[in-house]
Amino acid sequence: MNNKGKIYVVGIGPGNYEHMTGMAIKAIEESDIVVGYSTYLDIIKDLIKDKKTDTSGMKKERERCLLAIDYAKEGNIVAMVSSGDPGVYGMAGLILELISDEIEVEIVPGVSAANASAAALGAPLMHDYVVISLSDLLTDYELIKRRIDAAGRGDFVVAIYNPRSKKRVKQIEDAREILLKYKKKNTPVGIVKNAKRVGENVVITTLDTMLEHEIDMFTTVIVGNNNSYIKDGKMVTPRGYKI
């Protein structure tokens, strides 16, 4: 144990060892304690089998962060684990909001769900894009719809997180209807479940027919812009380079 505590906020990417950064692995290896959502720790169980761990379930984000801070105050090096990138709907912001000056914090980036899904689809994020979560647990739903409308009006590629759950089914339908005001019906849409994880499933379809396919909380949906197209089974958004 070190006299001065530290927190690494670590993005583990999709979860497979080969998709984690070297710094993420190093930070976890250096840590005395690893804290995180139980599902995420299970993904990296082989990496943390000799570590002290502390886990909790969904909706316990604040408690996990305070726990990590308490461990660091005791002089431990702590890895607070997030899937994807910790600064994209992850724990980085909350840790920085709650932390006090005496604790050092280092944010370790990871491959986000949008990036992992894009790689599985081809190159859909080659031009300007936005990432929008359809979860209204922490964001007013009317604001979410306004942001989708703005993204459609600006002809952005749109990466959609948390598109549908068992209880929340209408939001992805609303998002599609909003985007259809600005995008063509045959706009390419990529639907990726478990991106770069075991059980990965990739579907490339269109805005018109996207709801005919399975979409759940393990899915990221990427809607192209008006120049996106499909080539040899891959989704491409041209950057505009001369070829």
Rank of each mutant, 00 (worst) to 15 (best):
M1W: 02
N2A: 12
N3R: 03
I7K: 02
I7F: 04
V10Y: 03
G11I: 06
I12T: 07
G13H: 05
P14G: 11
G15Q: 01
N16Q: 13
H19N: 15
H19E: 12
M20R: 05
G22E: 13
A24H: 12
I25N: 09
K26I: 00
K26C: 10
E30V: 00
E30Q: 14
S31W: 08
D32Q: 12
I33P: 07
V35E: 09
G36M: 14
Y37Q: 12
S38A: 14
T39P: 00
T39D: 10
L41R: 11
D42C: 13
D42P: 05
I43T: 07
I44G: 04
K45R: 11
L47I: 14
I48K: 00
K49W: 04
K49L: 03
D50V: 05
D50M: 09
K51M: 04
K51E: 01
T53C: 06
D54C: 08
G57L: 06
G57S: 11
M58F: 01
K60G: 08
K60T: 14
E61V: 15
E61C: 14
E63T: 13
R64T: 01
D70Y: 02
Y71T: 08
Y71N: 11
N76P: 00
V81E: 04
D85T: 11
P86Q: 13
L96A: 11
I99F: 10
I99N: 12
V108I: 15
V108Y: 03
N115D: 09
N115E: 12
S117G: 15
S117V: 12
A118E: 01
A118F: 06
A119V: 09
L121H: 02
G122C: 01
G122L: 06
M126Y: 03
M126D: 01
H127A: 13
Y129E: 05
Y129H: 14
I132W: 03
I132V: 15
I132T: 07
S135L: 09
T139H: 11
D140M: 10
L143F: 11
R146S: 14
R146V: 04
I148L: 15
A151D: 03
A151R: 03
D155E: 09
V157F: 06
V157W: 01
V158W: 06
I160T: 01
I160V: 14
N162D: 14
P163A: 13
S165E: 10
S165P: 07
R168I: 09
V169G: 00
K170H: 13
I172T: 09
I172D: 03
E173P: 00
E173N: 00
R176A: 04
L179P: 05
N186P: 02
T187H: 08
P188I: 02
I191V: 07
V192Y: 02
A195N: 08
A195L: 06
A195V: 07
V198W: 06
T205M: 05
T206R: 00
T209E: 15
M210T: 02
E212C: 05
H213F: 10
H213L: 03
E214H: 11
I215F: 07
I215L: 10
F218W: 02
F218G: 01
T220R: 08
V223M: 07
N225M: 05
D232K: 14
G240K: 00
G240H: 03
G240T: 01
Y241W: 04
Y241Q: 00
